[in-house]
Design a protein around this nucleic acid. Structure first.
Lengths: 201, 201
DNA sequence: GCAACAAGTGAATCATCATTCGCAAAACTG
DNA sequence: CAGTTTTGCGAATGATGATTCACTTGTTGC
């Protein structure tokens, strides 16, 4: 008598969920949060607005999930780099470059995640995300200070500054049509800035 | 027969305009753009919503005016510092400190101006503003490079990074309730970061 | 004071979206 | 298959908030 989801159905549901998330991400990448209304997301995912609410209790939660998932992914990559081998300076540089390069690939997405605000809830989630990024950078900084590569400094502030620095340098060229001639030049310049800022000799 | 504004009336009108701007600023400082609906601004200014539209064609234009005015003011101060006497390093540091200190005084206001988004129009205005800030910093950097104080570097990117760095470091503690123990410590740390980043020895 | 016009009012209008809801279709169980 | 439960639909609902508008009030010039 009870109803239980068959594995097939299970899968289809999961697929739909994925489709929603992907549709939302795509819309955000194109037009920012502005363009990602629930109706638009539903349309892009090929389903009705009502169906969306079967998968996510609210718009805010959809966005928060999107955001935290993306950030988790990003943080994993960064953490890998940061806790790899090499001098602190090399690792810091590699992390910044890696982040910057990926951000330039999906510019609006990066912008929306980093800067564009939405609901208070989403905003709160974003702050947490930024803190997570900071934490990763704080780690290399601490390493570098311990090894004497970097001068002593408040790592939390410096880490925040680093995140802010590349964020700004990346977001600006992204916003309206001001594409930088050569991305790799930009990435290198940003990385230089950040390593210098850490105090590497 | 024609109607002409007497000087007295003229003045009263200008006063009202001021009152609107001030009310909006106050509301933004308290609750961000979110709290500054036209109705709220009207109430705070002691007039009807309709009257607002006699002074500003739209909400967006009111905000843009607010923003650009504030930025002009800020830029004037910074330009004064930047084109003063002293080494490039000293001037850079002084500018960053000055900005940071003022931003910490009116945290929400700074946040709203720097980070909180609103209309596309307002957002566009904000980007222009950030570019103006950048330009000021680019100037010191160029000076410093010319004098050999700073190593060669793409000044536009570095300037953007500097703006981003202190912006982020300032905005984060500001957002919800995370007040830094000692503002002056924070300011100093940020300034240190930026001067190191410029490459000062 | 009065005609002509400007400024001020605030409730009504409009637009935009998230969210809900009554129903229809589909999936499970036995 | 019949009965039950879930999923999907999409138009209606509701909330929010900017903007307008028919009207009142105040000013100006005579």
């Amino acid at each position: 008598m009870a109803y239980r989801r068959s594995p097939l159905m299970q899968e289809r549901l999961a697929e739909n969920r994925q489709r929603i998330v992907r549709a939302a991400r795509k819309l955000i990448a194109r037009d920012g949060f502005r363009g990602a209304s629930m109706t638009a997301v539903a349309a892009a995912a090929g389903m009705s607005t009502g169906a969306l609410y079967r998968y996510f209790p609210s718009k805010a939660e959809l966005y928060v999930e999107l955001l935290t998932e993306a950030v988790r992914h990003e943080c994993t990559i960064l953490e890998g780099i940061v806790s790899g081998r090499g001098t602190a300076r090399q690792r810091l540089r590699a992390a910044v470059e890696s982040f910057a390069r990926r951000a330039l690939e999906g510019p609006n997405l990066a912008y929306a995640f980093i800067a564009e605000p939405a609901d208070p809830e989403v905003d709160a989630a974003r702050i947490v995300c930024r803190e997570q990024f900071s934490a990763v950078f704080a780690k290399v900084l601490k390493d570098g200070i311990a090894s004497g590569e970097f001068p002593p400094q408040p790592v939390d502030v410096s880490a925040a500054c680093i995140v802010g620095a590349f964020t700004e340098a990346l977001v600006r060229p992204v916003t309206p049509s001001v594409r930088h001639a050569k991305d790799s030049t930009l990435v290198a310049a940003i990385a230089d800035f950040c390593t210098r800022a850490a105090g590497a000799k």
